[in-house]
Every structure is written in structure tokens, then in C-alpha cells.
């Protein structure tokens, strides 16, 4: 048998045996039960805990705001969001996410990814049902009224960091609408040894009127040259990218002259 080592022992005496621990519990009893005292627990079904506005509960969708960009379905770790065509209430149909709440783990990544503030996590947390199929919602079944959701934030738009851009055109190919146009910059062509000129450097130009902020171009860019930013700081602001503006102006001039 192994040897048992013991360290030095301290004794607290008769007072410590019962009186001191008892005194603490007596004090707490008086603090919580008599006048002015407050119990430490809530009577749950009758009383409910106060939750902050950013509490991550059951998901809700504001159908009017959804642009059908599929960002939420792409970012969801459990694949509980699936896109489908559904009626928004006035007879027109729209491409919107359907939800399987039984698979949701309330991580909130979809809410962060949503560019149009259409997704919102409500304060509802009592989601138990008898049947698993009751937790699968078509888009209009988990819809929220716009007034229950927070105010809409400005849309983020793709911004170009020109230093990283190689003009490969991956963003142009990824774009679902015709937002991106690859424009060559005049005077950037390299002279070859035989005297001819090579191709000019191209950069993407964005037509923000058509953009739905789906961030597919940002995902497609192999060199991290694009980033999603709120519009006030994007290329539409002349102070940020004067060079881009000049290119656009020159392009229009050429079109006019042609």
C-alpha cells in the first residue's frame, strides 16, 4: 500500500464547529424573508426574467426588408436556413429564407451577416413543442412586423482596396446582377520588348443602384481586395477614392466622344 502523507492540520474549535456557519445562514434567511427582503428566485411561469434587447432568442424575419441575398444561409453553421419562394402577404412572391428552428443553435451569425437588418433575434425563449415538425417554418410563418425589429441600418456596399486588386475579374463573374464592370485604366499598359503594348490594368467599377449587398464578390476575391462597408464610407464618397471617380469620368468622356 502506498504511503499516505498528511499536511499540518488547523482546528477551529467549538465555535467553528456549528455557530459561525449557522450564523451566516440565519442572516441570509432574515435578509430574504422578512420586511424589506427580496427572495433570490423567481416564480417562473408567473414571473419572468427581464431580458435586454440584444438577447439572442427565437429568430424572426422582416419580409419587407429581405433582399434574398442568401448571406444567412451561407453563414449558418447548422444549415438550418434554406432559401425558398414564398408569398409576402400581398400576392407577390419573393426569394426568402425558411427556418428549421429545431436545428438552430442561437449563435446569431446570420443576424450579423444580414445586410438589410431583415433578421432579428427576439426575446422569445420558450420554444418547446410536442412535434419536431412544428418547428420548421416557411418564410411567412416566422415573419416579424417591422416595428418589432430594430431600425434598419444602412446597407453595406463593397469597397475596393486598390493596392490588393490584380484585375482578375473574379468579382465580376461572381456577381448575380450586373453591378460590377471591369474597366481598364488608361496608361497602365506595359511596353513589351518588341514595341507593342500589353493589356491595361483593370479594376472593378460598382453600379450601386443595382447592388443587393450579397457580399458574393467579397467572398470570390482571392486577394482580399474587397470589403463590405456602410455606404457613407464607400467608393461613392469622392473623398475616399478620387482615383476611381476620375476613371469613371474619363470613361464617360470617351463614350460621349465616340
Amino acid at each position: 500500500m502506498a504511503d499516505v502523507l498528511t499536511s499540518k492540520k488547523k482546528r477551529v474549535g467549538l465555535l467553528g464547529y456549528a455557530f459561525k456557519p449557522m450564523w451566516i445562514s440565519l442572516r441570509t434567511l432574515m435578509r430574504t424573508s422578512f420586511a424589506g427582503g427580496k427572495p433570490n428566485t423567481l416564480l417562473y411561469p408567473e414571473e419572468k426574467i427581464d431580458l435586454p434587447d440584444d438577447f439572442r432568442g427565437e429568430l424572426g424575419l422582416v419580409m419587407d426588408r429581405c433582399v434574398g441575398c442568401e448571406s444567412c444561409a451561407r453563414v449558418c453553421p447548422n444549415k438550418c436556413l434554406d432559401m425558398m419562394e414564398d408569398d409576402i402577404g400581398d400576392g407577390t412572391t419573393k426569394w426568402m429564407p425558411a427556418l428549421d428552428l429545431a436545428q438552430c443553435m442561437f449563435c446569431g451569425l446570420c443576424v450579423e451577416a444580414c445586410p438589410s437588418t431583415a433578421l432579428h433575434m427576439t426575446n422569445r425563449y420558450e420554444t418547446a413543442t410536442q412535434d419536431r415538425n412544428e418547428k420548421i417554418f416557411r418564410p411567412h410563418e416566422w415573419a416579424l412586423k417591422p416595428e418589432d425589429a430594430p431600425d434598419q441600418k444602412p446597407f453595406p456596399y463593397p469597397e475596393l482596396y486598390e493596392i490588393n486588386c490584380t484585375g482578375c475579374g473574379a468579382c465580376d463573374r461572381a456577381c448575380p446582377h450586373e453591378v460590377i464592370d471591369m474597366v481598364s485604366i488608361p496608361g497602365t499598359a506595359k511596353k513589351r520588348p518588341n514595341g507593342t503594348f500589353g493589356p491595361e490594368k483593370k479594376i472593378p467599377i460598382f453600379d450601386y443602384e443595382l447592388c443587393v449587398s450579397c457580399a458574393l464578390c467579397v467572398d470570390a476575391c482571392p486577394f482580399d481586395a474587397l470589403d463590405m462597408l456602410p455606404r457613407s464610407t464607400t467608393a461613392s464618397d469622392p473623398a475616399v477614392q478620387p482615383q476611381l471617380q476620375n476613371v469613371k469620368v474619363e470613361q464617360t468622356k470617351q463614350e460621349v466622344s465616340a
Binding site: 488547523k10 482546528r11 477551529v12 467553528g16 464547529y17 459561525k20 456557519p21 450564523w23 451566516i24
Partner: peptide, 11 residues
Amino acid sequence: DYLIEESEVFR
């Protein structure tokens, strides 16, 4: 400290 450490039972 009073409730746990000062108690001989815990020690």
C-alpha cells in the same frame, strides 16, 4: 469564509 472555512466539518 465563515460558512465554509470556519466550519470544522469542512476542514
